[in-house]
Design a protein around this nucleic acid. Structure first.
Length: 356
DNA sequence: TTGCCGTGCCGTCAAATTAA
DNA sequence: TTAATTTGACGGCACGGCAA
């Protein structure tokens, strides 16, 4: 899709992309044409482009009249391409990665053989990359107004109330004394998983709100940014999680494993100051036994799977948005095409009046 | 009602891509 | 160079439509 916006020529089952560049001095110019198989188009992998000579007809190519382009394939076959849209009509879909197309007059072609090799390498390097949907759409939207950008975080179209954080990438996983895993995401999602055979069973996602009334029926973890004693508190139904920064001094009896830079978490019953369960903050340096190493590996794997799960969701959302964007572009282009055809018919009628 | 098929969504893996 | 992120591919599951 990142090849959109160039002139696409299909011939003998092969597809070629070409950018039209006009020479200021001479109407007869040589364009470099990237040629690749359609199979590569599907996978996004583009092989080393072979160069084809494109000669633009010297006469009759001025603005207002269709340009006739002769494309000579490496096999020797010549394809005639008649352009309808002239340069005043820029391509609506811009390529996110506009390549610098080699433009050389025919007289200079022999002298630029070395630079062509270098440029070919550069072009291959650039073309073989597969930009992300976000990058494609963002660059597309920067070129063409009216296309919404994909935000770094989920937009309001997700239907998320503005006071609810939706960032779901976990930054910390903690294990309670009862074996529960608690993953706290940067944006506020808390996931609690009960210990199961695969470690993922019983995963619960809780949403934190900074303010506002909880939606009816929803399980809400209220998040207080910071209390007077410098602690961060999470109010969970039935228990209270106290997030204690390591610099702040809480009662030492409440601390279980203050290891290194890791903050310590405690789960308390809401009506009592006594800890319901003490949370371990695992530090890689504190692991000794093979069992602990295995647990650490399991924890890392769960964290990776959780992150990838969220990443896949986000990727699918971006892909949908990208497809929607392309569909809207198709609609725009169809309307534009229809208008141009009508305009052409009108001009034909004007230029060739009926003679009886 | 049942089996089949198409579609959509999700989780996971692996490879490609990007950022530091 | 390396770690993190992104995305294509694959398999599984749920759901709805349709014919037998």
């Amino acid at each position: 899709p990142w090849l959109c916006g160039r002139t696409v020529i299909s011939a003998l089952g092969r597809q070629m992309t070409m950018e039209t560049v006009e020479s200021q001095q001479d109407r007869s110019v040589t364009h470099s044409v990237a040629e690749h198989s359609s199979a590569h188009m599907q996978t996004g992998q583009i092989s080393v482009p072979t160069l084809a000579q494109v000669s633009v007809a010297g006469s009759g190519t001025g603005r207002g009249s269709p340009a006739v382009t002769l494309v000579q394939l490496p096999s020797g076959q010549t394809v005639q391409v008649q352009g309808v849209i002239q340069t005043p009509h820029p391509s609506v879909i811009q390529s996110p990665q506009i390549q610098t197309v080699q433009v050389a007059t025919i007289a200079e072609t022999d002298d630029s053989a070395d630079s062509e090799v270098i440029d070919s390498h550069k072009r291959r390097e650039i073309l073989s990359r597969r930009p992300s949907y976000r990058k494609i759409l963002n660059e597309l939207s920067s070129d063409v107004p009216g296309i919404p950008k994909i935000e770094e975080e989920k937009s309001e179209e997700e239907g998320t109330p503005p006071n609810i954080a939706t960032m779901a990438v976990p930054t910390s996983i903690y294990q309670t004394s009862t074996g529960q895993y608690i993953a706290i995401a940067q944006g506020g999602t808390i996931q609690i998983s009960n210990p199961g055979s695969d470690g993922v069973q019983g995963l619960q996602a809780l949403t934190m709100t900074n303010s506002g009334a909880p939606p009816p029926g929803a399980t809400i973890v209220q998040y207080a940014a910071q209390s007077a004693d410098g602690t961060q508190q999470f109010f969970v139904p039935g228990s209270q999680v106290v997030v204690q920064d390591e610099e702040t001094d809480l009662a030492p009896s409440h601390m279980a494993a203050a290891t290194g830079d890791m903050p310590t978490y405690q789960i308390r019953a809401p009506t009592t100051a006594l800890p319901q369960g003490v949370v371990m903050a695992a530090s890689p340096g504190s692991l000794h036994s093979p069992q602990q190493l295995a647990e650490e590996a399991t924890r890392k794997r769960e964290l990776r799977l959780m992150k990838n799960r969220e990443a896949a969701k986000e990727c699918r959302r971006r892909k949908k948005e990208y497809v929607k964007c392309l569909e809207s572009r198709v609609a725009v282009l169809e309307v534009q095409n229809k208008k141009l055809i009508e305009e052409l018919e009108t001009l034909k009628d004007i230029c060739s009046p009926k003679t009886d």
